[in-house]
């Protein structure tokens, strides 16, 4: 039994990719959950907001690259990110002013906002297509690996190699910083607490002198920031393709619901639960098993499901969690 090599294979093929993917989902789910908590609806345009933010960031990245500006080993997109966030926040605030506010003032039922978000989804989808087209774009530059397979083998003398891509390390680090900042903001600052108060009890927030419109604007800005960061990290890690950003809506919603809609802590937990199950269930465990049980030669690849069916995993996780905990892992509905 070769536990070390098995562990390395596990880290390389399951843990690291799942951690990076989980961080991306968590950031996406945080945005969905915040909107759900504050504005009371599931934003179907969130995937396209991510795509739009990423598209803007890519355009700025290209401009920076053309101007010869780079971040050395880090992707230039990191420099472009603030502008991407600003552009996305501007668009999202504009949609709030032009679309959602009207219904908010009327105190319309949230299902109407859901419908409106479908309209906004079409709009943003079209805008992203106008901006950057529908083709796949790769925009990661800088160093490709923090640790590459050969160095790792030489360093450790192990047979199994381990690679840590810059984008994966970056994803996790950025996600940790962003999540820390968000929780600090929500739990320690007056504006953050005002957001939680509003999500708890709108009328009482008003009676405490909290300006609801400010809370809503702040929420949109944060959601736009989270969406853009999630989208750019996802794009750096894989590639930018607008349609994939639409498809990622399902695991993101699943993560938010699994964690308990409206609960930020839940969104993060949900993101990792979904990501780890997706990767673990669609990974062929043959190699790991080969190290653990030398001599055992199973017929198949020990892959529970083909990677094409990773969406099915989010779905099943979602159903199982809801069957046993109807409000999600963390009690939902409170930001």
């Amino acid at each position: 039994m070769d536990i070390l090599n098995a562990l390395v294979a596990f880290l390389n093929f399951v843990f690291i990719p799942a951690a990076a993917y989980g961080a991306q989902l968590a950031l996406g789910a945080l945005g969905v959950t915040l909107i759900y908590g504050i504005l009371r609806f599931s934003n179907f345009a969130h995937g396209d907001t991510m795509a739009f933010g990423t598209a803007v960031t890519i355009l700025v990245t290209w401009a920076l690259q053309a101007a010869g500006i780079s971040l050395g080993p880090l992707p230039t997109a990191l420099l472009a990110l603030p502008l991407g966030i600003a552009g996305t926040a501007a668009l999202v605030l504009l949609t709030d002013r032009a679309v959602y506010r009207f219904y908010r003032v009327q105190k319309a039922a949230p299902i109407i906002l859901v419908m409106a978000s479908v309209g906004v989804m079409f709009l943003m989808n079209g805008l992203t297509r106008l901006l950057i087209g529908v083709d796949e774009q790769r925009f990661a530059d800088g160093a490709r690996f923090v640790i590459n397979v050969r160095d790792f083998r030489e360093m450790t003398g192990l047979q199994e190699g381990l690679a840590l891509k810059t984008t994966q390390a970056l994803t996790v680090i950025v996600a940790v910083i962003v999540v820390w900042a968000l929780f600090w903001f929500l739990n320690r600052t007056k504006s953050g607490k005002a957001m939680r108060a509003y999500s708890d009890n709108e009328d009482l927030a008003l009676l405490s002198g909290i300006d609801p419109e400010k809370v809503v604007r702040l929420t949109w800005i944060i959601a736009a920031g989270l969406a853009t960061i999630a989208g750019v990290l996802y794009g750096l890690d894989k590639a930018f393709k607008p349609f994939n950003y639409f498809q990622i809506l399902l695991p993101i919603f699943a993560a938010a619901i699994v964690g308990g809609l409206g609960n930020p802590l839940g969104a993060i937990a949900g993101g990792f639960v979904v990501a780890f199950s997706e990767v673990a269930i669609t990974y062929p465990w043959l190699k790991v098993a080969g190290y653990l049980f030398p001599g055992w030669e199973p017929g198949g690849l020990l892959q529970l499901l083909g990677t094409e069916y990773k969406f099915a995993v989010s779905f099943v996780i979602l159903i199982v969690v809801l069957l046993f905990k109807p409000t999600g892992l963390f009690r939902g509905k409170s930001v």
Binding site: F102, M115, L123, R129
Partner: peptide, 25 residues
């Protein structure tokens, strides 16, 4: 702009939905 004009249909559909929701729900 001319190249991507075909994508206008997405924007158009979004606008149609939003306008109907707003003015003739």
């Amino acid at each position: 702009l001319l190249d991507s004009a075909a994508h206008m249909r997405f924007i158009a559909m979004g606008l149609v939905l939003l306008l109907v929701l707003r003015f003739a729900p």
